[in-house]
Every structure is written in C-alpha cells, then in structure tokens.
Computed example of a mutant assay.
Amino acid sequence: MTSAQQFIGRLMGFGRNRDGQFHALQEEALAEAAPPEPPTRRHRHGPEPQRIVQEALAAKILGAWLQNRHQTLFPLTLNLGTLDAAGRALLVRMMVAAADADGGIDEAEQDRIAAALEAIGGGKAERGLLAEAIATPLPLGALLHQVMEARLGPHAYAASLLALDRRSRVNQAWLDYLAARLALPEEVTASLNRRYRA
C-alpha cells in the first residue's frame, strides 16, 4: 500500500460520520493525494490566481491608506479645549493675521472671529486674547515660525478659514500662501476646506 493510500485510509477512518458516510472527506483526501495537473500553455507563464487576488487587495488597501493618511497623521478637528494656553493664543493670533490680510480688521470681521472662537470652544480668555492680538499683532514671520514650532500648521489653516470670507481673492491668496508657508499637503488643505466651508 502506498503512502498516499495510507493517508487516505487514515482520513476516512477519522472522518467517518455516525451513519458511516464520509463522502466529503474522501473527496477532499483524493483531491489532495492526486498529482497536480500539468500547466497548460495558457497558464504556464502567468501568475497564480491567488497571487493576483492578493496583489489586487494589497493595492486597494494601500491606496485607501494613502488617501486617508493625512487624516490619521494630522489632527484636523479644531477644538481649543484640546490645546494648551500657548496653542490657543497662537490660533487666536492666526485668526487676527488672516483677517488683517486684506489690509485691516473691521467690526464685522471682529464679530466673525469672536463667533468662530466660540464655535471651537473659546471662552472669556480667548476673547481677551483677541483684543490683545488686534491691539498688538505679532510680525507674520515670527507668528508662522511659532506655529510651525508648535506643530499647529493644520490648526492654523483651519483657524484662518474660520476667520475669512473666502469669496475675496485677497483672502484666497492668503490661504494659498499660508498652505505653502506651512508646508501643508494638498490633501490636508482640501480636507480642511471641506470641513470648514464658510
């Protein structure tokens, strides 16, 4: 008796059901013991179907991760309550700098910033910071440097979106400049523009 026959015999013995039937195991064992069919000319040089499926799934998973990588790498939800005092102050100053990009901050823009601060968790302290930032603005270069040092680039861009009327060409140019200056990828700014559409 060959080793293949012994193997089949053992499988049939262990797999026998109470009613004595073992068709499923017998067919499986015979399929395993049978020599593989020689490759046809059509499939001789082609990849195995299982490998094709694995590669396709891997490509899809990688593509999905790449599309969402910035949402996992960057905290894009703007909530002042999650930041320390220095971070909150920086974002207030960024909102003031954004509103001032078109040459000045009028009363309507101040009201807009105050409403935006309240919407993202700001309180009395942030309203006080707003008045201070308008009265004594930081030089833009120094402000952006501090934002980058604090790793708050996406937050600063989102805060600027909330402070601006994006229908203005000047304000849109400011946002483009800010994205470039803070080295924000296009995927990040596109996501923020969707989230904080005014």
Rank of each mutant, 00 (worst) to 15 (best):
E28V: 07
L76C: 06
E48D: 09
T82N: 11
V92S: 03
H70D: 09
F14P: 00
R16P: 07
R44V: 08
R41C: 15
H23A: 10
F22G: 05
L83V: 08
A58E: 06
A24W: 02
A86H: 14
L30I: 10
E37T: 02
A29V: 11
N79Y: 13
I52C: 12
R41V: 15
A31F: 12
P49G: 03
Q71S: 08
R88C: 04
P47D: 03
R42W: 15
P38R: 14
N68M: 12
R41K: 14
T77E: 07
G81S: 08
H43S: 15
Q71H: 09
L62C: 10
H45V: 08
W65G: 08
G87C: 01
L91F: 02
G15C: 00
F14V: 09
P75N: 06
R18T: 07
A31R: 14
G81E: 07
E48M: 08
R69G: 02
A58H: 06
A34G: 01
I61D: 08
R51D: 08
L91K: 00
L30R: 05
T77S: 05
L30A: 02
A86N: 10
A31P: 02
P35M: 09
K60M: 11
E32W: 05
H43Y: 14
Q54E: 15
G63N: 12
R69Q: 11
A86G: 10
G15F: 00
E55Q: 09
R42I: 13
R51V: 06
E37K: 05
E48I: 11
H43P: 13
F14H: 07
E48V: 13
L57T: 11
P35Q: 13
L66K: 11
R88L: 02
R44K: 03
R51A: 05
G20W: 03
D19K: 05
W65I: 12
P35L: 08
I61T: 09
F22Q: 09
G13N: 10
L25V: 11
L83P: 09
R69K: 05
R51P: 00
D19H: 05
L90W: 00
P36R: 13
P35H: 14
L25R: 03
A29Q: 13
T82V: 02
A31I: 12
G20N: 06
D19Y: 06
R51F: 06
A59D: 06
Q54D: 15
Q21C: 15
P35C: 10
L83C: 10
A24I: 01
L66T: 15
E28W: 07
T82R: 06
P36T: 11
L91A: 01
H70V: 14
A58K: 06
A56I: 14
A58W: 00
N68C: 12
N68I: 12
A58S: 08
P36D: 09
G13S: 15
T40K: 09
R44Q: 09
E48P: 07
K60R: 11
Q21H: 13
E28S: 03
P38G: 08
R88D: 03
E55P: 00
T72L: 08
G46H: 04
L57E: 08
G15V: 01
Q26G: 13
N17R: 09
L80V: 03
